[in-house]
Amino acid sequence: MFAEYRTKPYVILCYEALFRCLLERYRTNEILIADYNRYYAGFRGEKDVDYKLALYPHNDFLIHPDIRLKNFNHYFQIDTLILTKKFFCILEIKNISGELEYDPVLRQLIQKKGEVENGYKDPILQAEAQKVNLVTWLQKFNINIPVETISVISNPSTIIRIKEGDTEIYNKLIHAESLHEHLDKLSLKYTKDVLTKSTINKISNTILNENTPYLPNLFKTYNISEHHLIKGIQCPNCQHYPINRLYKKWFCPKCSTINHKAHERVILDYFLLYKNTITNKKCRQLLQITSGRTAYVILNSMKLSQTGKNSAREYHAPLLKNFPQNSDFLSRNRSILDFNNKNKSEIEDKFYLN
């Protein structure tokens, strides 16, 4: 069973917010789109593995997707962590297409697609590094339990070739289709309960409490400034901006579209791209309105948590799981994201918007 269901991580939500906020001429930048597609492909692969796990018949498995915990001064991230009373298991999930060749001597993974080759970090080494971090983290709570790792290739059409080496690699780098079989092997390998159900629940709650999702600063990554961005609210129908606030509604002067909640996505995008709190004054600037009373009504209608009083009052961003998961803008503008087949070497390593 899942302790929590996987939602889009901040990094994907931030990219989607950025696409909505950028002026049209900047939305089709190839590197921006390539980076988004890379993250989204990883997310899709993780969701595919979640589906496989949801069909696994062992009800005593407690599954934590996408966790990021802190050890001393650094964070470590695990795609999926499975808790049982007998053992824990880390899943490192890769959604890579084409033909993969794993070299156990050089510890590298090479993707071949036609005449193009790309190198990737060794997923087995990545999972082992996460294991070291997890074991250290568990020691804070005096938890000592076997920890296994499996690197899972989620794309069923991917061909995996392993050069001669330790046969144990076949238990460490697998297709998602054989995940149930490998989890069964681990269940047979570990037959003795190490932890009680109560202890597992306590660890699970601690993981949920200490999980710190990564929130990127895309403005810094791509050198984005205010002149790259739309001012005010853009019409969801014709993309004209800004639309006007009129009698508790948003009205587009170009196509006459009326929307009651057009402000909500803009404010949520602000949380993703700027900071996790907003004031009445900043809200007025963001929405291009002048009335403090209107901003007050709008912010309170979103039922955001608040701190402070009067002009010092701040409204706080919702939890990650409460951000909208749909991306209507991208589904209406698929041409922006028709960028999946570019040779990686054709794209600059570092890029800035002009």
Rank of each mutant, 00 (worst) to 15 (best):
E24V: 13
E24Q: 15
E24H: 14
E24F: 13
R25T: 15
R25C: 15
R25V: 14
R25N: 15
Y26W: 12
Y26T: 11
Y26H: 12
R27W: 07
T28W: 10
N29I: 08
N29Q: 13
N29F: 11
E30K: 15
E30N: 15
I31S: 12
L32Y: 07
L32S: 07
I33R: 07
I33T: 09
I33P: 00
D35V: 04
D35N: 14
Y36E: 00
R38I: 01
Y39V: 02
Y39G: 03
Y40D: 00
Y40N: 04
A41D: 05
G42S: 05
G42N: 01
G42P: 00
F43R: 01
F43P: 00
F43V: 03
G45W: 02
E46R: 02
E46C: 02
E46S: 04
K47Q: 11
D48P: 04
D48C: 07
D48L: 14
V49H: 02
V49Y: 02
V49W: 03
V49M: 02
D50M: 05
L53C: 11
L53Q: 09
A54S: 15
A54I: 10
L55P: 10
Y56G: 04
P57H: 07
H58K: 12
H58V: 04
N59C: 03
F61I: 09
L62W: 10
L62I: 11
P65K: 02
P65D: 06
D66W: 06
D66S: 08
D66F: 10
R68A: 13
R68W: 10
R68L: 14
L69R: 04
K70D: 09
K70T: 08
K70M: 09
K70E: 12
N71V: 06
F72R: 15
N73Y: 14
N73H: 15
N73L: 13
H74F: 14
H74T: 14
Y75S: 10
I78R: 13
I78W: 15
I78A: 11
D79K: 02
D79M: 01
T80G: 06
L81N: 08
L81Q: 11
L81Y: 11
I82K: 10
I82P: 14
L83G: 05
L83P: 08
T84G: 13
T84L: 13
T84I: 09
K86E: 12
K86T: 05
F87S: 01
F88R: 02
F88P: 03
F88S: 01
C89G: 04
L91M: 04
L91S: 05
L91C: 05
E92H: 07
E92G: 03
I93D: 05
K94L: 07
K94T: 06
N95I: 01
I96H: 02
I96A: 02
I96M: 01
I96K: 03
S97N: 03
S97G: 02
S97Y: 01
G98F: 00
G98M: 00
G98I: 00
E99K: 10
E99Q: 12
L100V: 04
E101L: 14
Y102D: 11
D103H: 14
D103Y: 12
P104K: 11
P104M: 08
P104F: 10
V105C: 05
V105M: 09
R107K: 15
Q108K: 12
I110P: 06
Q111T: 03
Q111V: 01
K112I: 11
K113I: 11
G114I: 04
E117A: 12
N118E: 14
K121P: 03
K121T: 09
D122T: 09
D122E: 09
